[in-house]
Design a protein around this nucleic acid. Structure first.
Length: 361
DNA sequence: CCAGACGTTGTT
DNA sequence: GTCTGG
DNA sequence: CCAGACGTTGTT
DNA sequence: GTCTGG
């Protein structure tokens, strides 16, 4: 499934990720509705790349609400964006609400990553899933227009899902359809109405899709900011409660597994597009790879020899590259939930100790 | 013919 | 809009 | 997706 | 439990 994501991409980044020709100044529509967020959920607006017009082959970035409202929805019906925020790709060509959109209402949604909750009995642990080179994920989606009784047009979309890749099966059974290359994106966006959609509606199996656990606090939709994607250290699961008095969690904490694959993909920046009016060009020239903390220096090395298996059991899979640069979140951006947090994480909290284990309870 | 549905997820 | 059910 | 509410009356 | 809201 896909019910939560990070999208703090600027329109140019969306355009570039989706393969729009003139990505430097893409045509946009209703972008004032776009509020970049580390915690996007159904019901909020995201930039969607769709074809411009019927015959025109150009693309436009159109900000739409996540959660499909089919055009045939009754004029006076109460809108429910939380019912159809996903569409099963396996049945999308049969279901009445989606079927009619497949030929002519396909679109792309670019996000930096998405969240997935792992259920362990009563507990739910969220993980952040993303590409190890931090290029955006381009997701397959469908959109529709609906007009209310006052003549207002509502633009909404739904993200297609498929079964999880074998690598992500441990986490969930469903995942969004990730269009992993230019031809898949192009086919989905520009393919003729009768094109064989099944060919691109596959689960993404490549090993550059990685993940790590994040704070359960981000489950609250109002919790926003870079803290959402900060890697956390999972507490080891202890069968025997007594044993936790006898080991140092710092010794057995999960280490990362360095992916050895090198990617030629251009790393994308993670700056904000908070408000075009305020600082439209400030970030234009930056090509720096940025990240928003959370990857303590203590995580950086000595992990080379660790087994992949062990790392993945501990719920982390990542690439060296993401530690190449350690930078702060730009302070030009308003991030309310961050501002409230007066204390930055102490080293104590980053590197888990027996003391912190109890302090946090 | 008209009326009514049209969905996913996870959990039971 | 389009299909299913009565 | 998860979090949070889950109610009425009358008055401002 | 189930619905609504973000």
């Amino acid at each position: 499934m896909c019910g939560r994501a990070r999208c703090t991409l600027r329109p140019e980044q969306v355009a570039r990720a989706c393969g729009i020709d003139d990505a430097s100044s893409p045509p946009t529509l209703q972008m004032d509705r776009y509020h970049p967020s580390f915690n996007v959920s159904p019901g909020s607006y995201l930039p969607v790349v769709r074809k411009e017009g019927n015959a025109g082959k150009g693309a436009v970035i159109h900000c739409m609400k996540w959660g499909l409202i089919p055009s045939f929805t009754k004029k006076n019906e109460k809108l429910d964006h939380f019912r159809m925020f996903n569409a099963r790709s396996e049945s999308v060509s049969e279901k009445a609400s989606f079927r009619r959109l497949v030929p002519n209402n396909r679109c792309l949604v670019a996000v930096e990553g998405f969240y997935e909750w792992k259920k362990d009995g009563t507990k739910k642990q969220p993980y952040y899933v993303h590409f190890n080179d931090r290029r955006p994920l381009v997701l397959a989606a469908l959109y529709d227009y609906w007009e209310n009784s006052e003549g207002e047009i509502f633009c909404t979309f739904t993200i297609l899902t498929t079964c999880c890749s074998s690598a992500l099966q441990w986490l969930h059974d469903r995942m969004p359809v990730i269009l992993g290359n230019k031809s898949a994106m192009d086919a989905w966006l520009n393919g003729c109405p009768s094109f064989e959609v099944e060919s691109v509606l596959k689960s993404y199996e490549d090993p550059d899709l990685v993940w790590y656990p994040v704070t359960p606090e981000m489950g609250k939709p109002s919790f926003n900011g870079p803290e959402c994607i900060k890697e956390i250290q999972l507490k080891p699961v202890e069968k025997n409660p007594i044993s936790k008095f006898f080991f140092k969690t710092s010794e057995i904490k999960c280490e990362s597994f360095p992916e050895v694959k090198s990617s030629s993909e251009e790393a994308t920046q993670t700056n904000q597009f908070e408000d075009v009016k305020e600082e439209p060009t400030t970030h234009e020239t930056k090509e720096e790879v940025l990240d928003f903390g959370g990857h303590g220096t203590d995580n950086k090395l000595e992990v080379q020899s660790l087994l992949k298996e062990g790392a993945e059991k501990c719920g982390t899979k990542r690439n060296y590259k993401q530690f190449a640069v350690d930078s702060e979140f730009p302070d030009t951006i308003k991030m309310p939930s961050l501002e409230k947090k007066e204390n930055p994480k102490s080293k104590e909290e980053r590197q888990q100790t027996l003391l912190s284990y109890f302090q946090r309870r």
